[in-house]
Design a protein around this nucleic acid. Structure first.
Lengths: 125, 125
DNA sequence: GGATTAGTTGCATAACTGTTCAAATATTAA
DNA sequence: TTAATATTTGAACAGTTATGCAACTAATCC
């Protein structure tokens, strides 16, 4: 039943042995486009680090300054700041300066919900 | 208002400058324990890669063999197999041999739901 | 038996990531 | 102004990761 078929995907074509050409074509069509997959995996990747997850967990309970985050996580202020920069770049958190102190908060509730989902998955496993 | 306090976290203590010792203590208490955070971030980390996300997306539509996955994703059979091993190790997918062909499927629906969440986040953003 | 096909695995490697250190910026206090 | 504090940033480093190649196992077909 094996067969060599030419699969066309996003402009380029390549010869691959595939068991079920029809299924392959329909699966290929069903995939969200590359940029979408990239952005979704980006979100998950960001949440795939314990330090960042802890930071987000703290912020889900209200504004926290960098200094306090550093104390809670038990890590370098600089390290925390680097991670906050990443989170800022992805619009997951936003800063608010008050004098010398910068308070961070979640930009929206989506991340909080994703975290809750993660916790539930964990519990059910 | 700044103050130097000793924060005790999981047996070890360290001196850190922190703005709000009370808040820090309560946040520290509110954090899920290390192993839990680790496992949750592990799940997200696994989904934080476009190849794996595509694989999982395919499997969310039914059983697919390694060969077809390779064709759909346009990548090496070996590379796909390596990723499947990771997913297997985390009990996210399971193999079923039929002759020479190995069909993979999702172990449970949790991952599918997480992916849906990701897609929704993406859309709302 | 030998040949072919599907998949796995170990190794090598290039690319990426998280953290730390040191230096810079910004704001307040003396 | 100088000193102190809160945060940011860039460079460097160690550790991890995704992929491809080559060699292997497993199953089928001749």
């Amino acid at each position: 039943m094996s067969k060599t078929t030419t699969i066309v995907r996003e402009g380029e074509s390549c010869d691959v042995t595939c068991i079920n050409p029809g299924k392959v074509r329909s699966l290929a069509r069903s995939l969200p486009k590359a940029s979408t997959v990239e952005r979704i995996s980006g979100i998950f990747q960001i949440m795939g680090d314990s330090s960042r997850l802890k930071i987000l967990h703290c912020l889900s309970q209200g504004d926290v300054c960098v200094c306090d985050l550093s104390a809670v996580l038990g890590m370098n202020v600089s390290a925390v700041s680097h991670q906050l920069r990443l989170l800022r770049a992805l619009n997951l958190v936003k800063p608010k300066r008050e004098g010398r102190i910068v308070y961070y908060s979640l930009s929206n509730q989506h991340v909080g919900e994703l975290m809750k989902m993660g916790l539930e998955h964990e519990r059910e496993n």
